[in-house]
């Protein structure tokens, strides 16, 4: 578990070394832990309050999907950067049942769990980059990135 101060983050970025935080997800308590750690990392990088909250909300949704659909998995938080800005990369990974149709799961209003069905399309709107890889029966990995505004 690495939570580093601002100076260290910048040094790591300069050296191309990214800090990485692994949060095991197996219960609703872990959902809260994951979003708190994501918030802390975004704050360290100097994200605005609004972007920090958008990121924390996205992490909350992704972590809850793991608990609801796969039972357990992990959230990995990592500092990242493009040419001119730092950002946070979130990888939500599980070995659950996988998603039969990603296209359907990304459609507004679609849900198989009786929830609002806003999960993935909503998360996509909260972040800058969104990727999903899912193998039916093998698990799901969602990777999102949010850049400092």
């Amino acid at each position: 578990m690495i939570l580093v101060g601002n100076a260290v983050v910048e040094r790591n970025l300069a050296a191309g070394v990214e800090s990485e935080i692994h949060v095991p997800i197996a219960s609703d308590q872990d959902v809260v832990v994951a979003r708190h750690k994501g918030r802390a990392l975004a704050t360290e990088l100097g994200f605005s309050g609004r972007d920090t909250t958008l990121l924390a909300t996205a992490i909350s949704e992704l972590a809850r999907n793991i608990v609801s659909y796969a039972g357990r998995g992990e959230i990995v938080l990592r500092t990242t950067h493009n040419s001119d800005r730092p950002g946070v990369m979130v990888v939500a990974r599980d070995k659950g049942p996988g998603i039969a149709s990603i296209e359907q799961a990304l459609r507004e209003g679609y849900s198989t769990s009786g929830s609002l069905g806003l999960g993935l399309p909503g998360v996509r709107r909260l972040v800058d980059e969104f990727e999903i890889v899912s193998e039916f029966g093998e698990g799901t990995t969602v990777t999102v990135r949010k850049w400092k505004g």
Partner: peptide
Amino acid sequence: IQPDVAFAMVQLGL
């Protein structure tokens, strides 16, 4: 409801 929270809720579609 905090302003940032309201913003995130609307983005999320809630």
